[in-house]
């Protein structure tokens, strides 16, 4: 987590510079062009006309609700874990960290299968009348499983970037561990924590694979896109996609507003 100063080069090797720059630009275009397609493939008027349709509105409401809930759940459960991971030196730490990263490497659809096994009618669902699947709660469970590692990993890095001297200084000035956390550690880590929340939210709102297995109904935006695409083709899926991308992009804007893009380090 440090920044290198750019030093003026005296012997810039122009050939390699051009090659490197071209490769980078190619990749950037590859990111940008599909976004353009989203905007220009359909006439804005036809997209706008469908934005108010009941299925889009309902899916958007479901998505916002569940992504917010699963972000909050990830934060509540993940904050203490992230702090512990950032501060402990115990032997099992790496094993715990690996466990946190597990949902990131599991294919989401497999995660959905496994969750279904655990909380579905043959699992926890058999013991309770609560509906863990085919409900907004089921969506939250799927999103939390897939998205919470983003919160833990980013927040852990945020806590790690807080110099322990600040905490030691605070406590030697007579402030308890709790006060020190509230007045020193948390405020210093907050930009990184906000980045973690934003990433988690973005991942949750785009969650498809695990959600599809856990709760095809009630539909979130990604499931609605899939459904519209299957039934009515790409054109029908576009307005829903526009809404989803809009929400995801605003998450990115929030990160930048706080000045701490976690990928920048």
């Amino acid at each position: 987590m440090f920044q290198t100063e750019s030093i003026p080069e005296t012997d810039r090797q122009t050939g390699w510079f051009v090659v490197g720059a071209s490769l980078g630009v190619l990749l950037l275009l590859y990111y940008l062009v599909p976004l353009g397609a989203l905007l220009f493939a359909q006439s804005p008027a036809s997209v706008a006309a469908q934005l108010g349709s009941a299925r889009v509105v309902s899916a958007a409401r479901n998505s916002l609700l569940t992504a917010t809930a699963s972000t909050a759940l990830s934060a509540a459960l993940g904050l203490p874990l992230a702090y512990w991971l950032a501060r402990t030196d115990v032997r099992g730490k790496n094993a715990v960290l690996t466990l946190v990263l597990l949902p990131l490497v599991l294919p989401p659809i497999v995660s959905g299968m496994l969750l279904l096994e655990v909380v579905g009618p043959n699992g926890l669902g058999a013991f309770t009348s609560l509906s863990f699947t085919r409900s907004l709660f089921g969506v939250v469970l799927a999103q939390t499983f897939v998205a919470s590692p983003f919160f833990v990993v980013t927040t852990k890095a945020a806590f790690e970037s807080v110099d322990r001297h600040f905490e030691h200084a605070s406590r030697s000035l007579g402030k308890s561990r709790k006060t020190t956390f509230r007045r020193i550690t948390l405020p210093l880590a907050i930009p990184g924590i906000v980045a973690g929340l934003t990433l988690t939210f973005a991942r949750a709102i785009g969650e498809f694979g695990a959600t599809l297995m856990m709760a095809y109904y009630p539909r979130t935006l990604p499931v609605q896109i899939w459904r519209s695409f299957l039934n009515d083709g790409l054109a029908a899926a576009f307005p829903v996609a526009v809404v989803l991308v809009g929400l995801a992009l605003s998450a990115l804007l929030v990160i930048n507003a706080f000045g701490r893009n976690p990928w920048r380090h």
Partner: peptide
């Protein structure tokens, strides 16, 4: 714990709270 010792510690870099 440190907070119950009343021994103030001044660090090499000062450790002033940056926020």
């Amino acid at each position: 714990p440190p907070e119950r010792r009343n021994t103030a510690y001044v660090f090499q870099d000062g450790a002033l709270f940056p926020h």
